[in-house]
Design a protein around this nucleic acid. Sequence first.
DNA 1: TGCGTTCGTCGAAGCCCATCGACGCTGACA
DNA 2: TGTCAGCGTCGATGGGCTTCGACGAACGCA
Lengths: 342, 342
Amino acid sequence: MVTLVDVARYAGVSASTVSYALSGKRSISQKTRDRIEQAIAALDYHPNAGARALAGKRSHIIALMVPLHTEVHVPTMMEIAIAVTVAAREHGYDVLLLTNDEGPDGVQRVAASGLADGVILMDVRLDDERVPVLHARGVPAALIGLPVDPTGLSCVDHDFTTAGALCADHLAGLGHRDVAFIGYGNAVYQRHAGYAERTLTGFRERAEARGLRFLHRSCEGTYESTAGTLARILADRPDTTAFVVQNEGAIGPLLSLLRASGRTVPEDASVIAICPDVLAEQHSPRLTSVSSPKKELGQLAVDQVMARIDALAAGREPKDELLLMAPELVVRESTAPAPRRS
Amino acid sequence: MVTLVDVARYAGVSASTVSYALSGKRSISQKTRDRIEQAIAALDYHPNAGARALAGKRSHIIALMVPLHTEVHVPTMMEIAIAVTVAAREHGYDVLLLTNDEGPDGVQRVAASGLADGVILMDVRLDDERVPVLHARGVPAALIGLPVDPTGLSCVDHDFTTAGALCADHLAGLGHRDVAFIGYGNAVYQRHAGYAERTLTGFRERAEARGLRFLHRSCEGTYESTAGTLARILADRPDTTAFVVQNEGAIGPLLSLLRASGRTVPEDASVIAICPDVLAEQHSPRLTSVSSPKKELGQLAVDQVMARIDALAAGREPKDELLLMAPELVVRESTAPAPRRS
DNA sequence: TGCGTTCGTCGAAGCCCATCGACGCTGACA
DNA sequence: TGTCAGCGTCGATGGGCTTCGACGAACGCA
C-alpha cells in the first residue's frame, strides 16, 4: 500500500507538504506541487479513507435512509436517491445507503460512530421517530418530506398542495363541474403520509373556491381496484367529466377502463395525472400531468446537509430551511373542455 | 466524544481488554465482560468508524454500483439494492452507493482508498470495463449479471436461458403453434445486455425443439410502441395465439390492445410475462409469469463478496462462483390451451 | 510439590493522515 | 542597509482503535 510518506519521499519533500498540497489548506509553490503530483501519479497513490476520517474528523460520507417498503412510486424514489448520490460526489462526498427498518437506531449508529457526517431522510412521516434522534445528537440532516414540526431542521419537499390546486384550476378553467380524485390506497392516508393529504387539501380548497363538485376515492393501484373505484365514482356521480389520478398504478387501468366503457379521452372525459413526466408521456393519449423535479429535490437536500456539516465544523449555528419545490402542470393530450351536458 | 479509553477507565480495565471484549478475538471473563458492557451502556459508547477502519484495515463497507439510467425495471433494481443493504447489515457491513457513471474509476477510487472492502456490480455488460480494474487490483467483488469471461470472479444472475425455455415449454404443452416474443427495445439488444439475449436464446432453442413457429419483436415499452409491435406481429403471423412479454412497460398496453382488438385472454390468446410476481398479480386477468427471486440474488451477491473479503484477509485464494438462480413459472389466468384454428 | 498449560489481562507499537507551531528565506519598504 | 511580512516547508503530535508479545494467576497432571 502506497502512503503519503511514500509520496513525500519520492517527491523529496516532507509528508505534511504533501498533505497540504492535496488539501490546499496552505500555499505550496508550483514547483513542489508539480513534483508531488508527479509522484502521486507514478506511485498511484490514493489517500486512505479511514486515516483521513480519523485525522480530519470527517468521513466525507453522508447517509441516505430510504424506505424499505413503500406505497410511493419506486422509480421516483430511486431517481431521488441517484440524484443525491451524484450531487454528493460533486461535494467530494459518498453516500451510505440505509434502510428504513433500522429506524432511529440506524441514524444513531452512523452518526455516533462518525461513519457519516450527515444524514438525509426520505419518506418522512408527520411524526417521524427519527427526528428526535437528530435533535438529541445534533446530527446534520436534511429531510425529504415534512414532519409536523420542522423547527431546527432542513426540509425539502414537493409542493403537493399547489399540485392539487393546479389540477383544480386547470379543470375548472376548461369548464368541468364534476370532478373525481383517484388517490392512493387507504393505508397511505391512514398513516398520514404528508404528500397524499396535502395534495388532497390543495385540490379540495381550490376546487371549492372555483365551484367544482368533487369526489375523492382511494384506490390500491391494481387493475381490479381501479375498476371498482371507477364504477363507484360513475355510480355516485354519473356526470363526472374529469379525473385527477395520484396513483401511478391506476393510470394505465383507468385509461383502459374509460376506453372500454366507450368514453374517449379527452373528448368525453379529461384525465390529469400527478406523476413523473416520463410516465405521462408513455400513455396514449399522452397525459396532461403535474410533476415536480426529482433531481433538484435530491440536489437541494444534499446542499442542505452540506451547509449543516460546514456550519457544525465552523461552530456556526445552522439555519433552518424549508423548501417546497414548485410543481409544473404540463398540458398534453388528455384534457379538453368539458363536454356539453347530455 | 466517548472513546474506548473512557470505557476502559470506567470499567477499571485496560483499553485492549475492551477492544477484545468487543471483537471477541480473545476470551474475556464473564465478570469483566459484564462490567465493560455496563460501562458502554452508561457512557453511550460508539466505536469510531474511522479509527476502526484504520487500525483494523477493514472499513466494514461494501460498495454497490447501480446503473444510472437503465432500460431495466427500476423497482427490480431497487429491490435488489435493498436486499443487498439488509444482507450486508447482517454481516456487520454497510453499503456505499455508487452510480454507474463513475465507471471503472469509481471502483478504483473506493477500493484503493480503502473506503470499501469489496464491491458489488449491477447491470453488468458482457464486456464490462469495470472487470479489468477488479482483476488488476484484486478487489473482492461480486457481479450481478454475467460478463463474457467470468474467470476469477464471483457472479450471480437469473437463469434467463431457462426462463425463456420455460415459456416455450408451457405454451407448447398447451398446444400453441404460433408464438410471438415481445422483448425490449433495440438498444437493449445492441448493447448486448446479457439477460435479453439469454432469454431469447433459451426461448428460441426450446421453441425449435418443440416445433413452435415463433417471431421475436423488440418494443420500447410505451403504449404506442406496443401497438405498433402487435400490429406487425398480427400482420406477419395472423395465426399467432400466444405472446411472451419480456418488457414491463409493454404488459399493460398489450392487454388493453388485445382486448380492444376483440381478443379475449386467455381464450383467444395466451400471454406469459417475464416479470416480478407482484406485477403479474396486478393485471387482469392475473398473468401466468416467469420470475426469479430478487431478494436471494442480493443476498447471494453479499455472501460472495464476504467470502472473498475473508479469503483476502486470510491470505486464501478465493474460489470462483457462478450461480444462476432458477426461475419459476407460475400459472395464473392468462394462459390456456390454444384455440382451434378458424 | 513441581512443572507446564491455558486463561485473562495489560502495555506498547503501530495504522495513515491532518494540523499546529516553528523556522528559514525572499522581497518590499523605510 | 536593516526590518518586517508573508510564503513555503518541516517535524512533531495526536486521533481512536487493533493487535502482538508478555506476564501473572489459576489449574491440571505426574
